[in-house]
Structures are given as structure tokens and as C-alpha cells.
Amino acid sequence: MKRMKDWPFHVMIFPSLLFLIVFSYVPMLGIVISFQDFKPWLGFTGSPWVGWDNFSMLFERKDSAQVIWNTFIIAGLKIVFNLVVPFVFALLLNEIRKAYISRTIQTLVYLPHFLSWVILGGILVDILSTDGGLVNRFLVAAFGIDPVPFLSSGNWFRFTVVVSEVWKEFGYGTIVFIAALANINPSLYEAAEVDGASRWKQTLYITIPSLLPMAVVVGTLSLGNILNAGFDQIFNLYNALVYEKGDIIDTFVYRTAILEGKFGLATAVGLFKSVVSMVLIVISYRLAYKLANYRIF
């Protein structure tokens, strides 16, 4: 077949590109303020240059390593579970044959996404309290254990943060996979049925492979959040007892840069996070291309 001219492709992309140039690339020039002690009234050109000072503010604190590690581990766990749980949930949901039950469950698990952490934070503090909180009362009665310090001990705090995040978001994350399931060609199942393949085999050899590309895409893109551990959630839940395991880059930036009007520091931290994300995404993209010959984007 004769190769078609590709000018329509450029035309189709142009509007989006225009928006990106205006609202993303032009403002991106402002990254220069990472290297300035930026004062709004002096502007981009008038603010004093400070070299790498803003970056050393992030790296030279006594707790820098701790904060960065906390961010990485919390965000990493969230990325993994926010991928695995919706994936499995979508598979399980796929097995429910009565459409109305399936749809009801889908709608219900989608609800927590719409409550902000300000509200959920208050609810969690209540139900997870060691002093008569609902969950601890249940655990004590059912298993006879001591109340669990879900929010007031560092390791438990990480656990609580990850679990509550997954609980809030998995229903929303499931939607992508439900849509991907709908995209699977039914004739594949029909053929398997004829061959007498069990449901488990069908899942293993048709459903999961069909969903994998989408899972890789979602997973790779979520690597962009590898240093975003969820400001709203942590900010509403953390306290002095868990700073050691729960203070993250974003809460640190909020306290020392946003509240203080230090735009240079805030931008420098943003740049650091972006570079780390970029590296991971590039690696992931290359791996997917090499191993599976699949271009994620």
C-alpha cells in the first residue's frame, strides 16, 4: 500500500501543541527561579542568583535523607498498590455476571474519591483512635490484642496512609481497567469456550494479557508521582509522633517555602522531583520497548 502523506497528522496535533506551548512550555522558562532567591517585586531578571543554594536547602538539612526516603517509600507503595488493587478488583468484578450487582458495586467503590482528605482525615482520626476508635474496638474484641497505634506510631502510620489512600482511590482506578475489559474482543472468549478452556485459563491467557498493556501504561505514567506522596492526605493526618516516618517532601516544602513565600526553594524542589520522575519514566519506557516491543506513548 502506498504510504499516505502525514501532513494531516501534524495538523491534528497542532491545536494541542499550541495549548501546551502557551500554558506549559512558556511558563516552564520560569524554572530559572530555582537558581534565584526570587523576590516577586524584583522579577525574573532582577532577583539575585544564588546558584545551587535552594537545592542545598533541601539536601543539607539533618532530616533531608529521612524526608526524601519517606516520600519515596510512601509514594512507591501507593503506586504499586494503586495499580495492583484496581487491576485485581476489575478482574473480580468481571466475574460477576449480574450486571446490576456489578454496576452497583462499581458505583459504590467510586464514592470515596469524592471526599477530600480534610473530611476523611477527621473521620480516620476518629475511627482509628487507640482510645475507643471503631476499628480498634473491633480488633480488641475480635482478637484480644492491644489497640493498634495506626496514626501515632511511624511504621503503622505508613501502613495507614497507604491503605487509606488505596481504599479511597481504587474504585476510581478500576474504571480504566473496566473500560479496557470492554475493549477485549469477545470472539477470543468464544474461541476459548469452544476449546473447553476453564474460566481460570481464560483469565490467565486472554483477560490478563489483554489488560497488561493498559496496566503498563498506567503504571509508567504514575511513576511521575514517585516523589508525590500525597500532600493533602499526609498534611491532614501527620503529627509529631510520626514525623520520622511520615514527613514528606511536599509537607516540608509547604512549611518552609509555600508559607514563607520562598518561590525559589519551591521551584527547585519541584525541579528535583521532575528530574527523578523523568529518569524513571524514561527507564520504564525503554524497558517496555525492549522487553515487550511496546511503546507506552
Partner: peptide, 23 residues
């Protein structure tokens, strides 16, 4: 204060709460 206060406040509140909790 600009460079150190946040860290100092952090260790202060942590130490005090750890003591109150008996940790």
C-alpha cells in the same frame, strides 16, 4: 530561623510528644 527553625520545631514537638506518650 530562616534556615533552621522548621527543623528545630520538628524535633521539639516530636521530643515532647514522645515523652508524653511514654515512648
Amino acid at each position: 530561623m530562616n534556615s533552621k527553625l522548621d527543623y528545630l520545631n520538628k524535633i521539639e514537638l516530636t521530643a515532647f510528644n514522645e515523652i508524653i506518650y511514654g515512648n
